[in-house]
Write a protein that binds this DNA or RNA. Structure first.
Lengths: 201, 201
DNA sequence: CTCCGTTACGAACATTTGTTCACAAAAATA
DNA sequence: TATTTTTGTGAACAAATGTTCGTAACGGAG
């Protein structure tokens, strides 16, 4: 991944990033040539090697066709899922209430979605009403994981526990009762595992 | 701000966004013309009106010179401040440990910075060790606010309280003692107010 | 109905821009 | 030192691209 660069190559790469940040579009070969005091052909060759080393992607014969391999932005767009209807397709785009951007260092790879926390059933785990939970989609969970589950057509957060060969979904609040998971429970679906929480004050 | 668009204009704008998302660079007039089954001149005029209405910015005579006014990304880069030395300049770039991107809907306008929570002094407010706190820089606070303060050269989170004309910085944990703020306390500095919390599991 | 903004075409023009080629100096490497 | 890689030039070509102009159909507002 990402071969090392020479001084000049780095200079060009930095200039590309600077240009995009400032202008909002990619630079042309001549833009770079002008800024770095070089000729188009020199820059052109440098861009090729930058591409060979994996730092940029060049669209052949297309103006301003430089695309950065590593995004300038380190954020991930996570769709926020609103109410979930009784039907089957839980993850259709139509259900998206919008997107929240989350720093990529906060979340693992995989399919992600976000849920708005409704109620105080998880205060024991320091998750509050109004928080936004980032979930990684997965059907299986380990004991102790906090998971998002579809219970009676509503998406909620619960702690998943295995005890005496029985599986439970436990709220972290003494005012609520755990739900036992039977092998044939059609009313309950595990949607994913909690990977991050975001709270706004 | 942002005048209303006709059906066609919206179509063009959506196509621009789609293109940028997919290709990483702005579309040319002819790219759009091809996708929408129109001629370059038609698209060209539509782009002008889109510019007039404030949705895009056109770089004259520059290839792929379409720049979106509203960023596709709704994230804000917030610098994470690491250890704070005894010296004065608390907010110099040298102290930045990195950046975290936060959805713009989560934070207000103003200067922001982030602190990594160290210890359990705020568990009572459901803020845990390892959480990242997003702070808006400000010197004054209202009673009840959770603030970031520089206490003995260390940045910590505390709840600010006014009682009987005295000011306190209170941990939300019975194992810790409140700190009284005297008018001439040089050891204590309020850095800002808590606006969001991010937790990684 | 008339006026006007919008949408539309097609052709032509002027720039911008990617790309190539031959050649060479400078720097790193063996 | 010999060899390879990197960096560099200048000119020229071909393609991509923004832009303009004249013309016209369509639909809503008055």
């Amino acid at each position: 991944m990402l071969e090392k660069l020479t001084k000049r190559q780095n200079e060009v790469l930095r200039e590309i990033k600077k240009f995009i940040k400032k202008e909002g579009i990619s630079p042309s070969v001549r833009d770079l040539a002008g800024r770095l005091g070089k000729t188009p052909s020199t820059i052109h060759k440098l861009l090729r090697t930058l591409q060979d080393k994996g730092h940029i992607k060049l669209r052949d014969n297309i103006s301003r066709g430089i695309v950065l391999t590593e995004k300038l932005s380190a954020a991930v767009m996570v769709p926020i899922i609103g109410r979930i209807p009784a039907g089957q397709p839980v993850f259709s785009e139509e259900l998206y209430e919008g997107y929240i951007e989350v720093d990529s260092s906060l979340v693992p790879r995989g399919e992600l979605f976000a849920l708005r926390i409704n109620g105080d059933s998880m205060v024991g785990a320091n998750i509050l009403d109004g928080d936004t939970a980032i979930i990684r989609k997965q059907e299986i969970a380990e004991s102790g994981d906090i998971v998002a589950a579809l219970v009676d057509g509503e998406a909620t957060l619960k702690r998943f526990k295995l005890q005496k060969k029985k599986a439970y979904l436990c709220p972290e609040n003494d005012n609520y009762e755990p739900i036992e998971l039977t092998p044939d429970s059609t009313q309950v679906d595990i949607l994913g595992k909690l990977v991050a929480v975001v709270r706004k004050y």
